[in-house]
Amino acid sequence: MIIKIKDLDVFYKNIHALKKVSVSIENGKIIGLVGGNGAGKSTMIKSITGLVPIKNGKIFFNDRDITRLDSASIARLGISTVPEGRRLFAPMTVQDNMNLGAYLRFKNEKKKDIEKDIKKIFELFPRLMERKNQTAGTLSGGEQQMLAIARALMAKPKAILMDEPSTGLAPLIAKEIFKVIKSLKNRGYTILLIEQSARMALKISDYAYVLESGKIVLKGKASDLLKDESVQKAYLGV
């Protein structure tokens, strides 16, 4: 268990956004978290990364309590984020965006090693390599999402949190992104995948949770959830 979330309560003023949510993220697995608009999915990521205050409950990272840590310290422990809406540094080049992902490593590691890593990640995303000196704002939606993932990988993370990586992408491109995410798991990465398009997310996840108005209403092996009648009705449109 690399990340363990226990009985999390999060409020936005008087709106109870997360209600006693418990989630476990296992090493080397993709954990899916699906749910509709306003279910509290993004709030989950924001609470893990310290961007929203937590009322009750605890978050552990490798058995260390990180509930009250600030964002920068949480990142230092090895949690990397692919934020909702990509949130790239638009006027900066692809290369600069990736260097920023590796920000913490520039302190202790040799530039050469980081450059080697960039090359490795470019192998995963050849299109980014071609556009290395272009500014991030000029990329297409799919390329931007890939850059957001590449930027997160540059931090050499122990766990990656992905917030709706398929949003705003054409179905074919979204499919491509999911393929990449799956290949990341095969490379040993641990991923928390938050998604609205439940079918695609469940297909590549190992284990999944269904979030509904701030509560976990279902959990189980992703393959089982895909077959579950209530999930099919509510999220898969069967």
Binding site: F89, M92, Y103, F106
Partner: peptide
Amino acid sequence: RMGRIFRATKESEDIVRLFGAN
């Protein structure tokens, strides 16, 4: 490296924090 942080901060402080910069 510092300059990159400055430029990124202009875009979004929160995201810069997510990559570990104070």
